[in-house]
Design a binder for these strands. Sequence first.
DNA 1: TTGACATATGTCGATATGGGTATATGATGC
DNA 2: GCATCATATACCCATATCGACATATGTCAA
Lengths: 118, 118
Amino acid sequence: MARAATTTDAFNAVAEPRRRAILDVLARGERPVNDLVGLLGIAQPQVSKHLRVLREVGAVDVREEGRQRLYRLNGQALKPIHDWVKDYERTWSDRFDELDIVLEELKDKEDEDGGTDR
Amino acid sequence: MARAATTTDAFNAVAEPRRRAILDVLARGERPVNDLVGLLGIAQPQVSKHLRVLREVGAVDVREEGRQRLYRLNGQALKPIHDWVKDYERTWSDRFDELDIVLEELKDKEDEDGGTDR
DNA sequence: TTGACATATGTCGATATGGGTATATGATGC
DNA sequence: GCATCATATACCCATATCGACATATGTCAA
C-alpha cells in the first residue's frame, strides 16, 4: 500500500501547505479561482486540483456564477483536526502544568496496583 | 516533484492515522516500542518506522534503557497544527456566531468602499 | 459563429510512501 | 561465547502525489 490519498482525510488534505494557504484566503471570504491564482502565485491548473482535493474532503464548497466558480470555506471539515490536536495543548501550555502533575501521579498509582499489561 | 516527505512537517507526519494512534498512547506516558506493538496491533517494523518519522519531526523523544527504547511524547511539535486550526474553530462553534455576523458586516463594508481588486 | 475568458481535466515523470518480510544491531543472561 | 530478547534497517512492490504542460469544457460578448 502507498500513502493514503490526499482526499482520504482532512488531515491528509491539509498536509499540503498550498492547500492550507488556499483555505486561509477563503477564510476571509468567497473567491473565484483566478483570485487564488493571483494571490498565491500558483499556476491555475494546480489551484484547480488543490481545490478539488479540498472539495472532496468537504473543506470548501463551490457556487457557479457565470463563467466563474466561487469557492467558499467550510471549516466544519477541519473540526476533526482541531478535536484531535486540542488535547495536546496541555503539553505546551503552562496553564496545565499543575494538572499534569496530578495526572502523572494518578497514572503511576494505577500502574502500581492495576498493571496487567507490560 | 512528489508529495512532501512525511518527515517535512508535523502536518505531514500526523496525516497517517497510525502515527496519531501512537501519539495518543504516548500521551498517557512513556512506553517501550513493544508496548505500542501490542497495544496497537501493528507489526514491530512498521511501529519503528512510524516512530522514526515522529522522531524526525520532533513529536517524540527516545531514551535508552537496557535493550528497550522508551518513547515519550513531545507535544510541542504539534503546536503549529493547533495554532493553524484554532482560527477555524469559529466556523463550527456556536459561541462565535454573533461575532461572525459582526465580522461579516464589517467585511461587506470594506468591500464596498475599499475594493481595489476583483 | 467566432474568439476570448474561466476553469477543469489529462498525461508524463520523479519520488516517497507504507506494508510485508528478512535481516542487522545491540543488550542481557547463562 | 551463545541464544534470546528488543529494536532498527534494508529491500521489494503498488500506488498516489505534485508540478509542468497541453487541452477540453463551458460561458460570455460581439
